[in-house]
Each structure stands twice: as structure tokens, then as C-alpha cells.
Design a protein around this nucleic acid. Structure first.
Lengths: 113, 113
DNA sequence: ATTTTTACATAGATTCTTGATGTATTAAGA
DNA sequence: TCTTAATACATCAAGAATCTATGTAAAAAT
């Protein structure tokens, strides 16, 4: 059991959350940001990140602008309007889930039902 | 995005945690307990629960005693010694992950790296 | 008498992440 | 200057975990 197994299901919400704050980010930047913010504990792999971004784009939550830095392309993502409302929802949901989990693993001697 | 998608990766830890407190539980009881403790927010399905229990047993973290209630069998689980140490580890890990996630979705305006 | 709850189980489909692999530019260091 | 590391995208096969659906059957409740 490590952090990378626990991240399942939370990655897209995390991406939405970052884009809420930063407006405009590209994939690699998102991965670095998650690494920094988690103190190196959550390392998103390319094999997770890019498919997740593509799915969010396909679902109409993100829009993309390609930009050339020298000869190299960067795909900048931002939230669509749909993405903004979805994002708010997903974050509330995640926050509630975290609180519930915290509560469940913290409370001692849960009573028989 | 709902709680059932977010539970991925946390179910076994949750089971271990419950058995740490309650010593001896059977599958159906565990599912009910998770439902109660989460205020109905986390509904573990049989298709998730029983395979998870079987895996924990196969990995030597749980032991089983079958008991007949009338004509119906109940499979009571408890932590093995290995299960106890693993449990402590998994819970620490989960707690740390929850804190990290909480931190990431809560802090406003994360700075550029 | 019928329905709901209790209690186990598994198979197939789906989803998510990983590891491996690929391509290519740019920056840094020896 | 040459080599390595970092940047930046991408995809595929494999594995893990969950869900839905389905099945069986006893006990309790209506």
C-alpha cells in the first residue's frame, strides 16, 4: 500500500482543482506541481496523467491551446464553463470523502450497530 | 464522481482498521458498519467486499472461523499477527495520504514552482 | 404467504494506474 | 564539445480494484 495506489479516482479532481487556481497549465507542469505540493509523496506518471487530461478534454471539462516554445509544443489546458461547475462539485465531493475517511480511521472503538 | 469511485485503494485498509477495533467481524457486518460510520455515504458492494476479504485472507493478514447461526454459515474474520503489523502500516499510510490530499485541495493559490 | 433482510459467493465488464517504450528538443555539466 | 538530465508530449499491454448482475438460501418481518 502506497500513495500511488491511493490516488485512484482522485487524479482528475486534483487536476481540476489546480486549474481552478492557476487558470492555465500544461501537463508536465501539472505533474511537477502535484509533486511539489505533496512533498514528493504523490508522483503522477505520464501513463496516468496524459490519459486523464485527454479524458477531461473529451468530456468537455478542459479546453486546449497548443503553443510552441522554440520547436517544442506545449498543450496548455484551462477549465471550460462546464469544467468550472464540475470542478466545484468534484472538489466538494472529494472533501466530504476525505472527512468521512478521516473520521472512520480515527474514531476509536466504533460501537456495534 | 462519487464516493464509491473514491474508495478505490482504501477498502482493505478500512477493513483492517475495523478489525483492529472490533477484533472479530463477518463480511456482512463489515459492510453495514462502513455504511453506518460513513452516514450512508460509503456503500461497499458484495462484489468488492468479498473479493477484498478473500485477498486479505490469502495474503495471510486475516484468519477465518466459520460459525453456524442456525443453518446459516458466518465467516468471522480477525487479524493475524502479520495482519496487525500490516494494519498499523496501512493506516499510517492512509492517514498521511488523506492529510496530503486535504492539504492540496485546500490551500489557495498554490505558487508556481 | 410474501417480502425484506441477512449472508455468503462469483463472473464479466469497466475503470484507473503502472511500467515500458517511443520521439524529440533544450539545458546543464563534465 | 560531448554527454547526460530535464523537458514535453504520447501510447500500449498488463495488472489491480471496483461495480453490476446474478445466484443460492435461511431467517425475520410484514
Amino acid at each position: 500500500m502506497n500513495h500511488s495506489e491511493l490516488i485512484k479516482g482522485t487524479l482528475s479532481t486534483l487536476i481540476l482543482r489546480l486549474l481552478e487556481e492557476r487558470k492555465r497549465m500544461y501537463g508536465y507542469e501539472i505533474a511537477q506541481c502535484i509533486k511539489e505540493m505533496s512533498d514528493g509523496k504523490i508522483l503522477v506518471k505520464e501513463g496516468s496523467l496524459y490519459p486523464a487530461l485527454h479524458k477531461l478534454e473529451a468530456d468537455g471539462l478542459l479546453s486546449v491551446e497548443e503553443e510552441f516554445i522554440g520547436k517544442r509544443v506545449r498543450r496548455y489546458y484551462r477549465l471550460t464553463e462546464k469544467g468550472q461547475s464540475q470542478s466545484a462539485l468534484a472538489i466538494r465531493e472529494l472533501r466530504s470523502f476525505l472527512a468521512t475517511m478521516e473520521n472512520m480511521i480515527t474514531q476509536t472503538n466504533p460501537l456495534p450497530i
